[in-house]
Simulated scan of single mutants.
Amino acid sequence: MTKPTGGAKGPDELRRQIEQTRSELGNTVEELAGKADVKGRALARAADLRDKAGAVTVQLRSSAAQAGHVVQDRAAHAGPGPVRTVVQAGMRHPGPVLVAGAAAGVVAVGVLRWRYVHGHH
Protein backbone atom coordinates (compact mmCIF):
# COMPACT_ATOMS: atom_id res chain seq x y z
CA MET A 1 0.00 0.00 0.00
CA THR A 2 1.42 3.37 -0.97
CA LYS A 3 1.41 6.08 1.64
CA PRO A 4 1.20 9.67 0.58
CA THR A 5 4.32 11.62 1.43
CA GLY A 6 2.36 14.73 2.20
CA GLY A 7 -1.21 15.86 2.55
CA ALA A 8 -3.59 16.09 -0.36
CA LYS A 9 -3.02 19.11 -2.57
CA GLY A 10 -6.71 19.78 -2.92
CA PRO A 11 -10.13 18.12 -2.96
CA ASP A 12 -9.51 16.23 -6.24
CA GLU A 13 -6.23 14.76 -4.94
CA LEU A 14 -7.95 13.80 -1.68
CA ARG A 15 -10.78 12.03 -3.59
CA ARG A 16 -8.21 10.16 -5.70
CA GLN A 17 -6.34 9.02 -2.58
CA ILE A 18 -9.60 7.91 -0.92
CA GLU A 19 -10.63 5.93 -4.02
CA GLN A 20 -7.20 4.27 -4.24
CA THR A 21 -7.34 3.34 -0.54
CA ARG A 22 -10.87 1.92 -0.96
CA SER A 23 -9.72 -0.17 -3.91
CA GLU A 24 -6.71 -1.54 -2.00
CA LEU A 25 -8.88 -2.26 1.04
CA GLY A 26 -11.44 -4.07 -1.13
CA ASN A 27 -8.71 -6.26 -2.65
CA THR A 28 -7.35 -7.05 0.81
CA VAL A 29 -10.81 -7.99 2.10
CA GLU A 30 -11.36 -10.29 -0.91
CA GLU A 31 -8.02 -12.02 -0.30
CA LEU A 32 -8.82 -12.52 3.39
CA ALA A 33 -12.31 -13.83 2.61
CA GLY A 34 -10.82 -16.31 0.14
CA LYS A 35 -8.32 -17.53 2.71
CA ALA A 36 -11.03 -17.85 5.36
CA ASP A 37 -13.21 -20.02 3.08
CA VAL A 38 -11.55 -23.31 3.99
CA LYS A 39 -14.48 -25.45 2.83
CA GLY A 40 -14.63 -23.68 -0.53
CA ARG A 41 -10.89 -24.08 -1.04
CA ALA A 42 -11.09 -27.76 -0.09
CA LEU A 43 -13.95 -28.35 -2.52
CA ALA A 44 -12.06 -26.57 -5.30
CA ARG A 45 -8.94 -28.64 -4.57
CA ALA A 46 -11.00 -31.85 -4.54
CA ALA A 47 -12.55 -30.94 -7.89
CA ASP A 48 -9.09 -30.23 -9.31
CA LEU A 49 -7.77 -33.57 -8.04
CA ARG A 50 -10.84 -35.34 -9.43
CA ASP A 51 -10.22 -33.81 -12.85
CA LYS A 52 -6.55 -34.82 -12.80
CA ALA A 53 -7.37 -38.33 -11.58
CA GLY A 54 -9.99 -38.64 -14.32
CA ALA A 55 -7.47 -37.70 -16.99
CA VAL A 56 -4.89 -40.14 -15.60
CA THR A 57 -7.54 -42.85 -15.34
CA VAL A 58 -8.52 -42.43 -19.00
CA GLN A 59 -4.88 -42.62 -20.05
CA LEU A 60 -4.20 -45.67 -17.86
CA ARG A 61 -7.37 -47.43 -19.02
CA SER A 62 -6.27 -46.96 -22.61
CA SER A 63 -2.81 -48.34 -21.83
CA ALA A 64 -4.30 -51.22 -19.84
CA ALA A 65 -6.70 -52.08 -22.67
CA GLN A 66 -3.82 -52.08 -25.12
CA ALA A 67 -1.78 -54.29 -22.76
CA GLY A 68 -4.76 -56.62 -22.41
CA HIS A 69 -5.00 -57.00 -26.18
CA VAL A 70 -1.28 -57.77 -26.39
CA VAL A 71 -1.62 -60.45 -23.69
CA GLN A 72 -4.73 -61.92 -25.35
CA ASP A 73 -2.99 -62.07 -28.72
CA ARG A 74 0.02 -63.79 -27.23
CA ALA A 75 -2.14 -66.20 -25.25
CA ALA A 76 -4.16 -67.07 -28.37
CA HIS A 77 -1.00 -67.92 -30.27
CA ALA A 78 0.67 -69.70 -27.37
CA GLY A 79 -0.24 -73.27 -28.21
CA PRO A 80 0.31 -75.72 -25.31
CA GLY A 81 0.53 -74.30 -21.82
CA PRO A 82 -1.19 -70.95 -22.57
CA VAL A 83 -1.25 -69.88 -18.93
CA ARG A 84 2.48 -70.44 -18.53
CA THR A 85 3.09 -68.56 -21.77
CA VAL A 86 1.00 -65.59 -20.63
CA VAL A 87 2.86 -65.45 -17.32
CA GLN A 88 6.18 -65.65 -19.13
CA ALA A 89 5.08 -62.86 -21.49
CA GLY A 90 4.17 -60.73 -18.47
CA MET A 91 7.58 -61.37 -16.97
CA ARG A 92 9.37 -60.48 -20.22
CA HIS A 93 7.31 -57.29 -20.67
CA PRO A 94 6.43 -56.03 -17.20
CA GLY A 95 5.47 -52.54 -18.43
CA PRO A 96 1.87 -53.39 -19.42
CA VAL A 97 1.39 -55.36 -16.21
CA LEU A 98 2.62 -52.37 -14.18
CA VAL A 99 0.36 -50.02 -16.14
CA ALA A 100 -2.66 -52.22 -15.43
CA GLY A 101 -1.73 -52.34 -11.74
CA ALA A 102 -1.25 -48.57 -11.64
CA ALA A 103 -4.62 -48.08 -13.31
CA ALA A 104 -6.29 -50.22 -10.67
CA GLY A 105 -4.50 -48.24 -7.96
CA VAL A 106 -5.60 -44.88 -9.39
CA VAL A 107 -9.19 -46.07 -9.61
CA ALA A 108 -9.07 -47.31 -6.00
CA VAL A 109 -7.61 -44.00 -4.75
CA GLY A 110 -10.21 -42.07 -6.74
CA VAL A 111 -13.05 -44.09 -5.22
CA LEU A 112 -11.66 -43.63 -1.70
CA ARG A 113 -11.23 -39.86 -2.20
CA TRP A 114 -14.73 -39.56 -3.61
CA ARG A 115 -16.17 -41.44 -0.65
CA TYR A 116 -14.22 -39.25 1.77
CA VAL A 117 -15.26 -35.98 0.10
CA HIS A 118 -18.92 -37.06 -0.02
CA GLY A 119 -18.97 -38.29 3.59
CA HIS A 120 -19.19 -42.04 2.91
CA HIS A 121 -16.60 -43.08 5.47
Rank of each mutant, 00 (worst) to 15 (best):
G110T: 11
A104F: 03
L14H: 02
A55P: 02
S62F: 13
L60M: 03
P11G: 08
Q20H: 06
R92F: 01
R84K: 11
G26C: 08
R74V: 09
R22A: 12
L49V: 13
A47R: 09
K35I: 04
G119A: 01
G68V: 02
A104C: 07
H118K: 14
G79S: 04
V117Q: 05
R15W: 12
D51C: 04
N27C: 01
T2G: 06
A65I: 11
R16M: 10
L25D: 08
G90V: 00
T28L: 08
D73I: 06
V99E: 13
G68T: 11
G40W: 04
D12T: 05
G26M: 07
K39W: 06
L25A: 12
Q17A: 10
R113D: 07
A103G: 14
L43S: 15
V38T: 15
A75M: 14
R113L: 14
V106I: 12
V56Y: 12
A42D: 14
K39I: 12
P94G: 07
V111K: 10
Y116N: 03
A36H: 02
A100V: 06
E31W: 04
H121S: 12
K35W: 15
V87G: 03
G79H: 05
P94W: 01
M1K: 01
R113P: 02
L32Y: 10
T2N: 10
R16H: 05
A33L: 09
L25E: 09
P96I: 03
A108G: 11
R74E: 10
Q88A: 10
A44L: 09
Q66I: 15
D12L: 03
V107R: 01
P94Q: 00
V71A: 11
A8V: 07
L32D: 05
Q17Y: 05
A64F: 01
P80K: 13
Y116F: 10
V87Y: 10
A76Q: 07
G95C: 10
V99P: 05
G7E: 13
A102V: 13
T5V: 06
G81Q: 14
S23W: 10
P4M: 05
A53P: 04
V97I: 08
L98Y: 08
G101H: 06
L98P: 00
R92M: 04
R22I: 11
V86R: 11
L112C: 10
R50Q: 07
A8D: 02
V70M: 15
D37I: 15
A36C: 04
V109M: 08
L25W: 02
A36G: 00
Y116V: 08
A102M: 13
G81C: 12
V106P: 01
S63P: 02
Q88P: 00
G7Q: 08
Y116K: 08
V70E: 14
R61D: 15
G34H: 13
R61L: 14
Q88K: 13
G119Q: 04
A104Q: 09
D48I: 11
T5Y: 04
Q72K: 15
G40Q: 12
H118Q: 15
S23Y: 04
